Amino acid sequence: TGIVNVSSSLNVRSSASTSSKVIGSLSGNTKVTIVGEEGAFYKIEYKGSHGYVAKEYI
């Protein structure tokens, strides 16, 4: 489990790349469930599926 550490919002992406499609966003202080790691990204549970967020903001 981690907490989103941004002042505005954090993009949730379809894969572990900054060039991948943005599938949603999370507000600061949102609790997320981390299910894996891939490079500079965490794989998280997101809306019944999975998404990826940059580690530096969790």
Rank of each mutant, 00 (worst) to 15 (best):
S14W: 08
V4L: 07
K47N: 14
F41R: 00
I34R: 01
T1R: 10
V35G: 02
S25G: 06
V12Y: 01
L10G: 04
S15Q: 13
E45L: 14
I34P: 01
S17D: 13
S15L: 09
S7A: 13
T18N: 15
S8L: 10
N29H: 13
I34V: 06
I44V: 07
V12N: 00
G28K: 13
Y42S: 02
K31Q: 12
E56R: 10
F41D: 04
I3Y: 13
A16T: 07
V6I: 14
Y52M: 01
V4F: 04
I58H: 02
S19G: 12
N11Q: 14
L26D: 00
G28R: 14
N29K: 11
K47M: 15
Y46T: 02
S9K: 12
Y52W: 12
K43E: 09
G24A: 04
S17K: 07
N29P: 07
G39F: 05
K31Y: 13
E56Q: 12
A40Q: 13
A40L: 13
N29S: 10
E38Y: 09
N11L: 15
S49M: 14
S8G: 15
S49P: 01
G24N: 02
V35S: 04
G39E: 08
E38N: 08
G28S: 14
T18P: 15
Y57P: 03
A16L: 04
T30K: 06
G36L: 04
S17R: 07
Y57G: 13
G28V: 11
T1H: 14
V53T: 02
Y57D: 09
E37H: 08
G24F: 07
T30W: 07
G39V: 03
I58A: 02
A40I: 10
S19I: 10
I58S: 02
S49L: 11
I58W: 04
I44W: 00
T18L: 15
S17I: 06
N29G: 15
K43I: 14
E37D: 08
Y52N: 00
V12D: 01
V32Y: 03
R13Q: 14
K43G: 02
V12C: 02
K31P: 10
Y52L: 01
I44E: 01
G51R: 02
N5D: 07
T30Y: 06
T18F: 14
K47V: 06
S17T: 09
S17F: 06
V53S: 01
Y57T: 06
H50A: 07
V12T: 01
T30S: 12
E45S: 07
E45K: 08
Y52S: 00
N5H: 10
I58C: 03
T30R: 05
A40G: 12
Y42A: 03
T1Q: 13
E45F: 08
H50R: 04
S20Y: 06
A54I: 12
T30G: 05
T1C: 14
N5Y: 04
S9F: 12
S7V: 12
V53L: 04
S7L: 10
T1W: 10
Y57M: 09
S27W: 10
E56S: 08
G28F: 14
A16Y: 04
E45M: 11
V32N: 01
S7C: 14
V6Y: 05
I44L: 02
I44D: 01
E45Q: 09
N29E: 08
Y42G: 01
G39M: 05
I58K: 01
G51F: 03
G39A: 07
S20V: 03
V35Y: 07
S25V: 15
L26F: 04
V6M: 09
S8Q: 12
S49K: 11
E37A: 08
S20H: 05
T33D: 06
G48P: 05
A54Q: 15
Y46H: 05
K31F: 13
E38T: 08
G48S: 08
A54R: 13
I44N: 00
G48D: 09
F41E: 01
Y46S: 01
R13K: 08
E37P: 03
H50D: 06
S19M: 13
S9D: 11
A16E: 02
G36K: 07
V6E: 06
S27C: 12
L26S: 01
S27N: 13
T18Y: 14
V12F: 01
G24T: 02
K21C: 10
I3N: 06
I23Q: 02
N5I: 14
V12H: 00
I34N: 00
G48A: 07
S17G: 08
V35F: 07
V35E: 04
I44G: 00
K43D: 03
S49T: 12
T18H: 15
A16C: 05
L26Q: 02
S9E: 12
S20N: 03
I34W: 05
A40K: 10
S20K: 02
T1M: 14
G28E: 09
L26P: 00
S27Q: 14
K21I: 11
I58L: 07
G2V: 09
I3M: 10
Y57L: 08
L10D: 02
S20D: 04
G36S: 08
V35D: 03
K43V: 13
V4T: 08
I58V: 11
K55D: 01
S20P: 02
S14K: 13
G28P: 15
F41C: 04
F41M: 05
G48T: 07
K31L: 14
K55V: 05
S49E: 11
I23N: 01
T33S: 09
S27E: 14
R13D: 01
K47P: 02
S20Q: 02
L26E: 01
N5L: 09
H50S: 07
K21F: 08
S15E: 15
N11P: 15
T33L: 10
A16N: 05
S8I: 11
G48V: 04
S14F: 11
Y57E: 08
V32M: 03
G51C: 02
I58E: 02
T33P: 03
S27H: 13
Y52P: 00
S14M: 15
G2S: 06
A16D: 03
Y52E: 00
G2T: 07
Y52Q: 00
N29D: 08
S25F: 14
N11F: 10
G36Q: 05
H50G: 04
K31A: 10
S19Q: 13
G36C: 07
S49H: 10
L26M: 06
G36P: 00
K47I: 07
V32T: 02
